[in-house]
Amino acid sequence: MNHAQSVARISTATPVAHWLQALRGALVLMVLCGGLYPLFTVAIGAALFHVQSTGSLIERDGQMIGSALVGQPFSAPGYFHGRPSVAGYDPFAVSGSNLAPSNPTLRERASVSSSAFSAANGVAPTAIPVDLVAASGSGIDPHISPAAAEIQIDRVAAARGRPRSEVAGLVAARVERPVLGVLGQPRVNVLQLNLALDALGSEAGVTP
């Protein structure tokens, strides 16, 4: 293909022929890119990564209890609580607040969260880790920061009647560190932490 040359062959095709080419091109490329590519990828990917492919679901006692990738709301004092969600943790209604820092509505919402948390845990508002006041982007953030878990240990241990050190040990064991020490933030998956708590409780016959 020497593109430096000028147009040697003048196309004799009619405009109708050009539209027909466009139609055939559209159909062929849409089947290739929108049909074959995703079908092939799903076939290979689902075979290689079976558990992940259907949403990383978690089963307990034969019941689907949640997904490791979808946060859940918690209100009982014996459970660790996740972040504020404007979607009410409904994965079909995923959303962030989209409130600007200058919007008075954001401050009102934050002050409700802040005083509720402050009262329930007996800590000063300025001690609350910010991820417990700020709503997540997805509305189903499954994680909280390690600090946000640690500040809830006293409340959870008291509600469950278990030694603080036991609950603290559970939290420490479930902290996920940045990959290779670089990628991502330290974090705790709230659902998995609470499932581990329940597993403790069932050994001793205590429910939250």
Partner: peptide, 17 residues
């Protein structure tokens, strides 16, 4: 918006942990 309502930290509103 969070001044005095939480510990100082980065802007996490709309962000994932």
């Amino acid at each position: 918006a969070f001044a005095g309502l939480a510990a100082d930290g980065p802007n996490l509103e709309g962000k994932e942990v």
